[in-house]
Design a protein around this nucleic acid. Structure first.
Lengths: 120, 120
DNA sequence: TAAGGTACTTACTGAAAAGTATGTCACACC
DNA sequence: GGTGTGACATACTTTTCAGTAAGTACCTTA
């Protein structure tokens, strides 16, 4: 399946992709689930200091809806619910790597020297 | 220069990178400047329907501060100010491509079938 | 019968981002 | 002297997002 992007559709496509990653806690959650980890709600809660239950569930549910996270409910009392990444969620790795690489490149380009406002 | 990331620093690093791209209009602006295009303020205004002057200048200035966009002031009246990407800004291309690729992969993985909530 | 454990939900509050509308500046030309 | 041009700045309103606090459901064990 081949894709052809115009300025507008490409911008739109990336905007959509970014929207899936925006949110104060999504990346933190993501990185805890990378590598095939399967964690309970309470595990994540403990692993991410500062997050509230409301935020945790909100971001998890959003990512589940977006197909990034899988939710596994075990029928028992007290409740046990586990979270892990979908294949597609795992596939985010290279894309995030590319961003990290870009971020790290900053020093090596002449950005610093370019920063001053130019006047002609 | 080699980098070593932990879960936390990697998440942090990507969060920082994403912060540079977040904002209702940044990507649209970016895509208009990709390919070495040099555009005046008014060009961008016309090219991006729906954007207000306030938003346009706000996002441009932010990206300038972040080292993504270069601002070129011509001393004349009426004013003439041009915008283009820095080298580092141009270097975003592959990273955004990776995101777009990931986004497009969605169909080919079994996300759709995985979407239903699992129960054990 | 009371307490507790786990994964939530809901209502409320405050901060940050975006949108709208109007004003400004420095000159050039008529 | 009045008008127009291009690139902004500023004040104000609206919308969106995050955080805090409290409550719920269900069953289990003491």
């Amino acid at each position: 399946m081949s894709h052809h992007y115009t300025r507008e559709t490409a911008a739109q496509g990336i905007e959509n992709a970014l929207k899936l990653l925006e949110g104060r806690w999504k990346l933190v959650i993501l990185f805890h689930l990378f590598g095939g980890h399967v964690l309970r709600f309470s595990d994540l809660e403990r692993a991410i200091p500062g997050i509230s239950q409301k935020m945790l569930i909100q971001q998890l549910r959003q990512m589940e809806k977006d197909g990034i996270v899988r939710r596994i409910v075990h029928q028992q009392v007290p409740p046990k619910v586990e979270y892990c990444l979908t294949d597609w969620g795992q596939a985010l790795c290279p894309a995030l790597d590319a961003l990290l690489t870009w971020s790290a490149q900053r020093e090596s380009t002449d950005v610093e020297r370019e920063e001053a406002t130019r006047q002609d």
